[in-house]
Design a protein around this nucleic acid. Structure first.
Lengths: 245, 245
DNA sequence: TACTACATCTCGCAT
DNA sequence: ATGCGAGGTGTAGTA
């Protein structure tokens, strides 16, 4: 594509707050949270209406370079080719793209005010536990869920019939060492805050690594095998009837 | 764009392993690690040569829906419109896109074998500490760096002149509670493994949150103010001469 | 703004 | 394949 034509398309797209995507050959320098350089190659460049700036290589899922929403963009001529300069000032980030060839370009105003509905996240898991406290223990009485406290963010918090406070940490996937550390932190804080040692820690997840289980036991905590609601719905019909009502 | 034309373009692009991007109006269902639904709206769809499948709304940086490299795609007619079905079998993930209108399309084989060079990551930071151990303590002697052990991944490990083992955990940015927990885990493991209590924990980062600092002190650990190399290069000329050699 | 934790996290590396 | 931790993580929610 002709250089002057590209400049015009770029300016019009930005002025109209349209989405702009193009294939090009380019070389990239990033400076900000790190320093990075990517030699010349073919890429897809996406510029969104809100300033989001994405550069994708032909493989792999993540953009190789990017700036966040709110970035400012400027296109200028530079030593016989084009220089597309992006900056995101809040983080002092700069993304400079030397563009050698523009192959193809699309631009369009996209209309989309929709939000995704999602189920099966960690909040849904703590919901299920609150509604079926027997998952944790016969005598477990949850009193709060997803609560931000001075202690931190407790997934489920309650007590049992023996005068123990109970802290439950949920993980949607295999719980590892960091999950145990997190639980340990919460339990320690609760002990300190309430001035008691009668605090139990429970980790609820569909799976746990052997190292994590060992560490969990060394702290005197317990693990409960809990399958997140949406997966229970597909893998276990009985579980579904428990968790979805 | 005409439906039959789109089908042909899609099939050709996939057969030739080209990158394919298009604007469309669509409705999306995802099932796999969670269950999600996104009502009809305008989006950018990107299909990469390796099967990466990205759907972007007109704002925000991350794709609203996606499948990873290796996904299989199939396009079929469905009740008067088109259905683009993606599946990623290793995780039993399914991404179905009902396409109502195709606005524009680009496809091209992109040639790019380049890799990004990056400096200023955590490894560079542990390098700098290894080369300037006085950053941690006058008498600190590093013996290893970036080492995978049974204990975990130790950024810098060494000893001081008083017979203490020293574990250093680096963070490129503000260290929070989880960084302290991580350090605590490493120190505990080292104590257990070496059968000694003479193990010191040091957290090195440019910043630390107040809660994290409090927790750090309660464990008897210490914090060192360390600026990652690439930022030191821009903010402190003296630091540059130390760290870049 | 600072702080915290989730994420359909992704990715690389080592076992 | 699993385990583990980094990431230019991004993003949401709260104090």
């Amino acid at each position: 594509m002709d250089r002057a034509d590209f400049i015009e398309q770029f300016e019009q797209a930005r002025a109209a707050r349209e989405m702009l995507v193009f294939f090009c050959s380019c070389e990239i320098n990033y400076s900000g949270r790190a320093e990075a350089h990517l030699p010349k190659g073919d890429r897809l460049i996406v510029i969104k209406q809100d300033g989001v700036f994405l550069i994708h290589q032909p493989e792999k899922g993540n953009p190789i370079n990017y700036l966040k929403s709110g970035a400012e963009l400027a296109l200028e001529k530079f030593e016989g080719h084009l220089l597309l300069k992006g900056k995101y000032l809040p983080n002092k980030e700069f993304l400079d793209v030397e563009i050698y060839t523009i192959y193809d370009l699309l631009r369009r105003k996209l209309e989309d005010g929709q939000q995704q509905t999602l189920m099966g996240n960690e909040a849904d898991m703590s919901d299920a536990i609150r509604d079926n406290p027997a998952m944790i223990a016969r005598d477990f009485k949850p009193v709060s869920r997803e609560e931000h406290t001075k202690v931190g963010f407790l997934d489920v918090f309650g007590h049992d019939g023996k005068g123990n406070l109970v802290v439950v940490e949920c993980k949607r996937y295999t719980a590892g060492l960091s999950a145990v550390s997190q639980l340990h932190r919460y339990v320690a804080k609760i002990k300190q805050l309430k001035g008691t040692n009668k605090v139990k820690g429970v980790l609820a997840s569909p799976k746990i690594t052997s190292n994590a289980e060992e560490m969990l036991k060394s702290y005197g905590f317990e693990w409960r095998h809990v399958i997140p609601p949406h997966r229970a719905a597909r893998h276990d019909k009985k579980q579904q009837s428990l968790t979805n009502f």
